[in-house]
């Protein structure tokens, strides 16, 4: 059977008829395999979900305990119908996994989102040799070469030193990026309390329970703190909070934002960011290419992101690839 009869996109998402399941479906399906807890990959309302324990926990935190009919923790090699399935770490966020599927004599790996930089909150990416490599392409343009995140955190600390009378508001998404920024700060020697927006609390607590040493986190809405007390402090919040009156409680805040998109000046300015921090949980261009070399598939399929550039590059290297045009993924997701 041809590979694209064994695994193919449907309106619900990528479907494997051999195992009768979808991977990261965008609409409710009887059986879903979920790579990680980001909202465009993990959605509620499926009949059954197979994912890592941490992804299942995160989905329950986000959507409530009844987010699915039944759930199954991914462990070892599992048989689903005529397919066998195995999860491997993806280095993207806590619990993130690639899904290896063997069906009809062909081995597929669906990466979900992945990251090759050392990430203190996620188990490191493992290249898995396969026939068909199904990759994300969020940052698939040669302009994306993510710098050393420690150097970006150094910029934040330098700004705090230069503007001690101002608060520093760092925009970071609730799952993954926020905890990564906190860990990077701790590694850079920032031992002071870090103040967090209410919407980050539950996921931060969950990371701490899972053994990620986030240190002293306090609610940013602590009423015992006067406005001036936040001078020289770091406050983490989802970027959406900055537009609201919520941000006015802090003294003359410097707006920072931790995202791979911050590499592009126009993106930073559009968001009114004064201190862009290029910290990404995705593979950058060199890492995408390196990963494909290591995995060395017969063919590369591209789920979402900037497929044109990646296809062009692979064609230049005599590699076969095709876009899946999966719908339901944001054009510029949490980067």
């Amino acid at each position: 059977m041809a590979a694209d009869d064994l695994l193919f996109p449907t309106p619900e998402g990528l479907y494997c008829p051999g195992g009768d399941f979808h991977v990261d479906p965008v609409r409710p399906v009887p059986r879903a395999l979920v790579t990680h807890g980001h909202a465009d990959h993990a959605r509620p309302g499926n009949g059954a979900v197979l994912a890592t324990r941490q992804t299942l926990d995160i989905m329950a935190i986000r959507y409530g305990a009844d987010f699915t009919g039944t759930r199954q923790v991914a462990e070892g090699t599992m048989t689903l119908g005529d397919a066998t399935v195995r999860f491997h770490p993806a280095g993207h966020v806590l619990g993130s996994a690639q899904v290896e599927i063997e069906t009809g004599g062909t081995r597929f790996v669906v990466t979900g989102d992945y990251c090759r930089h050392r990430n203190p909150v996620a188990e490191g990416f493992e290249p898995v040799p396969c026939d068909i490599f199904i990759t994300e392409a969020t940052f698939a343009l040669p302009v994306f070469r993510h710098p050393d995140p420690a150097a970006e955190i150094a910029k934040l600390l330098a700004s705090i030193e230069a503007f001690p009378e101002r608060a520093h508001l760092v925009g970071a998404y609730a799952l993954g990026k926020a905890q990564r920024v906190i860990m990077l700060l701790r590694e850079a020697g920032w031992d002071a309390p870090i103040y967090i927006h209410g919407s980050l609390e539950r996921l931060c607590r969950y990371h701490a329970e899972q053994g990620v040493p986030l240190g002293d986190l306090r609610p940013a809405t602590d009423d015992s703190m006067a406005k001036a007390d936040f001078a020289g402090q770091i406050i983490l919040a989802p970027p959406s909070a900055f537009a609201a009156t919520w941000a006015q409680r802090f003294p003359d805040p410097v707006i920072a934002f931790a995202s791979g998109w911050m590499q592009i000046r126009a993106r930073a300015r559009q968001r009114g960011v004064e201190l862009p921090l290029v910290i990404s949980d995705h593979a950058d261009w060199p890492d995408l290419l390196r990963t494909i070399e290591e995995v060395n598939p017969e063919e590369t399929w591209i789920t979402h992101g900037r497929e044109e550039a990646l296809m062009r590059q692979l064609a230049l290297g005599q590699r076969r690839s095709r876009p899946l045009h999966l719908i339901g993924f944001e054009e510029e997701p949490e980067g």
Binding site: L141, V143, Q263, I264, A309, R312
Partner: peptide, 24 residues
């Protein structure tokens, strides 16, 4: 130095010639 098509895609995304060249 850079494949013309990859450059064009990058420039379209970045929107600024000097910035695209600096990054690529």
């Amino acid at each position: 130095r850079v494949d013309a098509e990859l450059f064009a895609l990058s420039y379209d995304f970045v929107g600024d010639l000097a910035e695209t060249i600096a990054l690529i």
